[in-house]
Amino acid sequence: MKKDYYEILSIERTATTEQIKKAYRKKAIEYHPDKNPGNKEAEENFKLAAEAYEILSDPNKKARYDQYGHAAFENGGFGGGGGMNMDDIFSQFGDIFGSAFGGGFSGFGGFGGGGGQRRMKGSNLRIKVKLTLEEIANGVEKKIKVKRKIQAHGVSFKTCPTCNGTGQVMKVTNTILGRMQTASSCHSCGGTGQIIESKPNHADAQGMIMEDDTVSIKIPAGVADGMQLKVSGKGNDAPGNNSIPGDLIVAIEEIEHETLKREGENLHLDLYISFAEAALGTNKDIDTVNGKVRIKLEEGIQSGKILRLKGKGVPSINSYGSGDLLVHVNVWTPKKLTKEQKQFFENSLTDENFTPSPEKSDKSFFEKVKDMFS
């Protein structure tokens, strides 16, 4: 069983955002690879702390975790922190504890090997993808063109003579407490441990060029507006022989549907019918995310009636089934009547059959609203 994220960071469930950040920084420094070379247990604790922080520092992920626990991110759950590697951790959260290690990370390529070359990761790219409600409900694969930096063909690198390939320079300072040694990123190579030996004329100073790339993005069913997907390795390249590309961050933007309104996993539809259709009953074709379906309205149906179509909503991102489609029946009152129509309704004013007589089983508006949200 996976350990509780709050327990990993040694905090209460009521901890504030700042308390969560401080707790993570403390754990990250305690288990940092530079302080625990070759210690696999410390490395694992370092990863667990980063995973816990990724979830608890995000209000949306934290709310889902508080409600469902680890199950919220299982079965390919969207946005989970499981399986984080060291590159992800230093790329996303390095600024939180980097100053405690002089700005550099020895062993970045091997994590715990000590003295290894820093492995650079390219910068992330961010794009926005617009999706229809139908695409969100059924999942979709999108092919997106992006401009990304890649290493030019023919570029070569050599070991940085300033730091001898470590990416760091050491500085010794005399203090009242004795000699203090600190490490900082090498100014010659920017911490990569390598400098350019040769490059083609069309490449920039880091040996990079811009290139158009088509990226295939599989978007799972059930995503929501504002969610983000990460496509690993589809961001910008980084200079150096041992570098890895950054990631492509895909922000989801939901296109508003013409008739269906989304509320979490449930959908709402306003259906307008005439007096005659309400009195006599009728069949209606209505929109769903999977096309049109026909529903039957019984004779004498009342305005405000809510029909629930089970499973016709949006699938859960965490594979908990699908929401429902709630059809709100509205009886449309005509604004203009012919002389004959007006005469008919005037005659109906004293007709007992047209006198409102709600049954006890008929729910009030407030009861319907309560049922809808329960």
Results as ranks from 00 to 15, higher is better:
G38W: 02
G38T: 02
N39G: 09
K40T: 15
A42N: 15
E43A: 13
E43M: 12
E44H: 13
E44G: 12
N45M: 13
N45P: 00
N45R: 13
F46Q: 06
F46K: 05
K47A: 10
L48P: 00
L48E: 14
A49D: 05
A50V: 08
E51R: 07
A52G: 10
A52E: 03
E54M: 07
I55T: 12
I55F: 07
I55Y: 03
L56K: 06
S57K: 03
D58E: 04
D58L: 03
D58F: 07
P59E: 09
P59D: 08
N60F: 14
N60K: 15
N60M: 11
K62W: 11
K62R: 15
R64D: 14
Q67F: 15
Q67G: 08
Y68D: 10
G69D: 11
G69Y: 12
G69H: 11
H70F: 08
A71N: 15
A71M: 13
A72G: 04
A72M: 10
N75W: 06
N75V: 09
G76W: 08
G76H: 07
G76M: 08
G77K: 02
F78H: 15
F78D: 10
F78G: 07
G80T: 09
G80E: 01
G81P: 06
G82I: 12
G82V: 11
G83P: 04
M84A: 10
M84N: 01
M86N: 09
D87A: 12
D87E: 11
D88M: 07
I89K: 00
F90P: 00
F90R: 05
S91D: 09
Q92R: 15
Q92S: 14
F93Q: 02
F93E: 01
G94R: 05
G94H: 03
D95W: 05
F97I: 01
G98V: 03
S99N: 09
S99P: 01
A100Q: 03
A100P: 00
F101I: 04
F101H: 07
F101N: 02
G103K: 01
G103S: 04
G104N: 01
G104V: 12
G104C: 10
F105Q: 11
F105W: 12
S106R: 12
S106I: 09
S106H: 12
S106T: 13
G110C: 14
G110F: 08
F111G: 02
F111N: 09
G115P: 11
G115H: 11
G116Y: 04
G116I: 00
R118T: 12
R119P: 00
R119S: 13
R119Q: 15
M120D: 08
M120S: 15
M120Q: 13
